[in-house]
Computed example of a mutant assay.
Amino acid sequence: METLKDGELYFDRLFTKLKLPEANYERIEFEDCCFSECDFSQSKFHYCQFINCEFNGCNLSLIDLSSTRLFGVSFEASKLVGVDWTKAHWPIYHRDFELTFSDCNLSDSSFFALVLNELSLKTCQLHDVDFREGHFKNSVMSDCDFRGSLFIQTNLEHADLSGSTNYAINVFENRVKGAKFSRFEALSLLEYLGVELVD
Rank of each mutant, 00 (worst) to 15 (best):
G134R: 05
S109L: 04
L193T: 06
K5W: 05
F131W: 15
L106F: 03
V129K: 12
L65M: 15
S74D: 03
E31G: 06
L190K: 12
Y192Q: 01
K79H: 04
E26N: 12
T16G: 00
L121H: 02
A88S: 13
V81K: 13
R95A: 12
N138H: 10
S110H: 06
A168S: 13
K19S: 15
H135Y: 06
R183A: 12
A113I: 01
L116V: 12
N56R: 13
S149G: 09
W85M: 04
D160Y: 11
K79Y: 08
T3M: 09
L99N: 02
L18V: 11
G178I: 06
C124T: 01
E133Q: 14
S61A: 07
G148N: 04
S66A: 04
F131Q: 02
Q42Y: 11
F136K: 00
Y47F: 07
S109H: 08
G7T: 13
K17Y: 14
L114P: 02
Y192M: 01
Y25Q: 07
L60W: 03
C104L: 13
T154W: 11
D108K: 13
L161D: 01
T165H: 07
F97V: 05
I63G: 02
S162R: 11
R147W: 10
E2C: 01
L80Q: 01
Y167I: 06
R13I: 06
D32F: 12
N174V: 09
F75G: 08
C48T: 04
T3W: 10
F30K: 08
Q125H: 09
S110I: 01
N56V: 15
R27T: 15
A159S: 15
I51D: 05
L9C: 07
S107K: 06
F131A: 06
L161S: 05
F50S: 03
L70M: 14
D32I: 02
E76Y: 12
S182Y: 01
T3C: 07
E29V: 15
T123S: 11
N170Q: 03
L193R: 08
A88P: 05
F136C: 04
E8P: 00
F172G: 13
L193Y: 09
R183Q: 13
F136E: 04
H135M: 14
F136R: 05
G163E: 06
T100I: 04
S41A: 11
S61P: 05
T165P: 02
K79A: 08
L18D: 08
I169G: 05
I63W: 02
L80K: 06
C33T: 10
F45K: 10
N138P: 00
D145M: 01
S67A: 02
L116F: 12
E8D: 07
C33H: 12
S110F: 01
D160V: 09
R183H: 07
L189S: 07
